[in-house]
Amino acid sequence: MKVAIIKYNAGNVYSVYYALKRLGIEAELTDDKNILSTADKVIFPGVGEAQTTMQYLRTRQLDQLIQSLKQPVLGICLGMQLMCRHSEEGNAEGLNVFPTDVLLFKPNNNEKVPHMGWNTINPTDDPLMKGIQASDYVYFVHSYYVPMCPYTIAQTDYVQPFSAALHKDNFYATQFHPEKSGKIGEQILENFLNLQI
């Protein structure tokens, strides 16, 4: 199986590469459009700032490429947020794969922002969430969130219930970092690798 990780100016795209390697997959870290289009699975990782990253993707036409992908795609953290319509972070227009907006957490009970650390997810029976229980912890680091929407496949409560994961057609996304979430995260990455379209 060919797995491509989209290489861009974000920090720490390597952690996903290493996590796949621990699962026995040698992924290719690339911004080559041809390799990305023909891979069996594409991962769009992300740690970074929304607007700067979108500009980078646009100047390399990676934005159009991601939108056009037909194989299973997994956006992670900022990757997920950029796959949405618009982000309040830097007032950035996103890829609109998921027609929903990304908002800044507004604490109503002195919650800390960023939402940082291990929190539980409440999954639906989506194939990406196979084997995941409602009490399982995954690792989050983010200040912006995707509200609950028709594409939500896992929910987490912080300030209010929000989308911990999304799925629409061949596009999947997690707000948390499966590559940093120990055994539970490995299960989710394996589920993604096992997806058939």
Binding site: G11, V47, G48, E49, T52, P114, M116, V141, S143
Partner: peptide, 9 residues
């Protein structure tokens, strides 16, 4: 650092 890589970094 916050601007280039995000606050959380």
């Amino acid at each position: 650092i916050a601007k280039h890589f995000g606050n959380q970094v």
